[in-house]
């Protein structure tokens, strides 16, 4: 895909809204267009985490391997969202499986390339980290809510 087209796609992704032209040029050098058919593994638990995905269309389920039983799906990430931050955190291994539950298109950003550029340009790196931290904060909040098992205890109708 042409670099210009990739820039257009990246600029439209909510994760990158407002990213400066300079940083966009930095980022696009690490980007490639990818596609996963329904049922395909996007990431696999324990494998080297060397990609960061910006989901364009479709949906990916995060699944934990459960010894002796089927995997447990704990979260999905879809259009306009991101998948994976293990590329940023040593030892760069995926903690979950990611399985496309619908045909999925994404921009894959090479993790090693991104880390190198973050080191070379700390302003770019800080901008990227702030964006990731926002996503992490929202997901942590969501995970805490999930842990509460909200829907199991309320009575019978009035109000819930």
């Amino acid at each position: 895909m042409e670099k210009e087209n990739l820039v257009d796609i990246l600029q439209q992704h909510p994760f990158l809204l407002g990213l400066s032209d300079e940083h966009m040029q930095t980022l696009v050098g690490c980007a490639s267009n990818v596609r996963f058919n329904e049922g395909a593994y996007v990431i696999r638990e324990g494998e080297l985490a060397n990609s960061f995905y910006l989901i364009r269309t479709g949906r990916v389920a995060l699944e934990m391997d459960m010894p002796g039983r089927a995997g447990l799906r704990i979260q999905t990430t879809g259009a306009g969202e991101i998948l994976g931050w293990s590329w940023l955190i040593s030892p760069y291994r995926w903690h979950f499986n990611g399985i496309a539950v619908a045909d999925t298109r994404a921009i894959a950003l090479d993790g090693e390339c991104l880390r190198r550029k973050c080191e070379e340009d700390p302003v770019f790196g800080y901008d990227l980290l702030k964006r990731l931290a926002q996503v992490m904060e929202r997901r942590l909040e969501a995970t805490r809510l999930q842990l509460l098992d909200l829907y199991g205890t309320t009575a019978s109708g009035v109000g819930a």
């Binding site: 949906r59 389920a61 995997g71 447990l72 799906r73 999905t76 306009g80 969501a142 999930q146």
Partner: peptide
């Protein structure tokens, strides 16, 4: 909140759907 391999829909809290 949690699904198995037969569930193709969203997994997560309802507030995540606002995305």
């Amino acid at each position: 909140d949690r699904g198995d391999s037969s569930w193709k829909g969203h997994i997560g809290v309802v507030t995540a759907l606002f995305s």
